[in-house]
C-alpha cells in the first residue's frame, strides 16, 4: 500500500519556524511507523532526525505524536494509523531538531521525586526480602520506560512545566509503595506541594498515552490517598 507521511521539520540552523514535509512511500500494513522513518532517512532525506535505540518498545527513545496521539513509533503499525500519517514531536518540551526534543526539563522533574531506593538499615547478608504480595503492590509502576509519552500528553504539564508530571509521579509511586524503601514520607511531602499530584485534573490523557499500559491516573489517586491517610499498604 502507498502511505503518505507528513513529518514535522525544524532545523534551528536553517529554519525560522517549523514546517511539514510530506513523503510518499510503499509500505506493508504490518510495518511500523519507525520502519517508514528509517526508510525515509536512508533513501529519501538523510537530514530527517529522530531518536531510536532498541526499536522494540523497551528503551522509550522514539516517543512521538503520531496522528495527534503520543505513541512509540516502534510499536505503532501502519495498519493501526492508516495511509495518511502525521508525525510530530511530543508536546511541552523544547524542540531541538525535527522529532528530537530537549528531555532535560522532563528528567529534572523526574529527579525531583527521589526516584531511587532509600534504605538506611545495614545491608543483610543476602537480599532484602519481600513477599510476592508486597512486590505486587507496585508492580504496575515498575514498567515505566521514561519515554515521556504520558507527561507530554498532560495539559497541566503543557501549561506549566514545573508540574512534576505523570511520569515522575509513577516513578515516585514505584518506591513509595515498596515495602523495603524508607523515604516514602519525603517523596509524599514533595508530591503534596504546589507542583505535585494536586495539579492533576484526572483527565486520563496519560493513561491513554502510556505505551506500557500503566494505570497512571490510578497511581496518582493512590498517592493522593497515601498523603491523606498515611497508609502505604
Amino acid at each position: 500500500m502507498q502511505v503518505t507521511l507528513k513529518v514535522y521539520r525544524y532545523n534551528p540552523e536553517k529554519d525560522k519556524k517549523p514546517h511539514y514535509d510530506t513523503f510518499t512511500l510503499e509500505a506493508d500494513p504490518t510495518e511500523r511507523v519507525l520502519d517508514l522513518m528509517e526508510r525515509i532517512k536512508g533513501l529519501q532525506d538523510g537530514t530527517l532526525t529522530f531518536r531510536r535505540s532498541c526499536a522494540h518498545g523497551v528503551c522509550g527513545s522514539d516517543a512521538m505524536r503520531i496522528n495527534g496521539v503520543n505513541r512509540l513509533a516502534c510499536k505503532t503499525l501502519v495498519q493501526d494509523v492508516g495511509k495518511k500519517i502525521t508525525v510530530e514531536p511530543i508536546l511541552g518540551l523544547p524542540v531541538i531538531k525535527d522529532m528530537i526534543v530537549d528531555m532535560e526539563p522532563f528528567f529534572e522533574n523526574y529527579r525531583s521525586v527521589m526516584p531511587y531506593f532509600v534504605n538506611n538499615d545495614p545491608p543483610p547478608n543476602g537480599e532484602r526480602l519481600q513477599s510476592p504480595e508486597e512486590r505486587e503492590r507496585f508492580d504496575d509502576t515498575t514498567k515505566c520506560i521514561l519515554c515521556a509519552a504520558c507527561t507530554t500528553s498532560c495539559p497541566s504539564f503543557w501549561a506549566n512545566g514545573k508540574y512534576v508530571g505523570p511520569s515522575a509521579i509513577v516513578n515516585a509511586h514505584r518506591f513509595i509503595f515498596d515495602s523495603r524503601d524508607q523515604a516514602a514520607k519525603e517523596r509524599l511531602e514533595i508530591l503534596a506541594g504546589q507542583f505535585g499530584v494536586y495539579r492533576c485534573r484526572t483527565i486520563f490523557n496519560c493513561t491513554l498515552a502510556c505505551p506500557r499500559e500503566i494505570q497512571i491516573t490510578k497511581a496518582i489517586g493512590e498517592i493522593k490517598e497515601a498523603i491523606a491517610t498515611g497508609n502505604l499498604d
Binding site: K185, Y198, I227, A228, T229, G230
Partner: peptide, 10 residues
Amino acid sequence: RRIPKILSFE
C-alpha cells in the same frame, strides 16, 4: 506501613 498524614496547603 504507615507514615503520619501529610497536611499541605495544596
